[in-house]
């Protein structure tokens, strides 16, 4: 019997959630036994090569590339999991929500304290660049999400417990310490 296939991605996130996946320590060896990884930064597979069983996504959507990526995951994964605060509610990138996007662009490229060389106020507008969304969107506002694992990052045990439950079809173990929003 073939192993379940897992794909992962980091959209508008910091890769902290992926670090937390790795934080399951030696259980990662069991995980490799249990599942096969497809598109994921963990194995550096860039595009989907087959239909996956589980897609795990960290980060929300702050630009058009995030959206396209997310749509590809929805298309190629039977189950999608929002991993971490950014995927669930936009997280820290969403601190910009409520501030007009023009102001954000100015702050980033012209007026921010770390900007010193852009006196002509050139704004990035190459067609190859992702386009910036009006706000940072939680994933479930764009596609259907099946499960949510909160935390910043989600505790390694929460991720492990969730995967075990999914792969074995058993009820998820949720001890008090593993569900945290920070």
């Amino acid at each position: 019997m073939s192993k379940p296939v897992v794909a992962t991605a980091s959209l508008a996130g910091c890769f902290g959630c992926h670090m937390s996946i790795l934080d399951i320590d030696d259980r990662i060896l069991q995980l490799v036994e249990l599942v096969e990884f497809n598109k994921s930064p963990i194995d550096d597979i860039k595009t989907f090569t087959k239909m996956c069983d589980v897609g795990i996504i960290e980060g929300g959507c702050c630009n058009s590339e995030n959206v396209e990526n997310l749509l590809a995951f929805r298309k190629n994964c039977k189950i999608l999991i929002s991993l971490g605060e950014c995927a669930i509610m936009g997280g820290l990138p969403a601190l910009r929500n409520g501030i007009p996007v023009e102001e954000c662009i100015n702050e980033a490229y012209c007026d921010g304290p770390t900007v010193s060389l852009n006196k002509e106020r050139i704004l990035p507008n190459d067609d190859e660049l992702p386009m910036i969304l009006d706000k940072v969107y939680p994933l479930h506002e764009i596609v259907k999400i099946d499960y949510y694992l909160p935390g910043c990052p989600p505790r390694a045990d929460l991720i492990w417990n969730a995967l075990v439950a999914l792969l074995t079809g058993s009820k998820m173990d949720l001890p008090y310490e593993v569900v945290k929003f920070d």
Binding site: I105, M131, L133
Partner: peptide, 10 residues
């Protein structure tokens, strides 16, 4: 959702 930012950066 990308309209404003695209307009702004040109």
């Amino acid at each position: 959702s990308v309209q404003t930012s695209c307009n702004y950066v040109g």
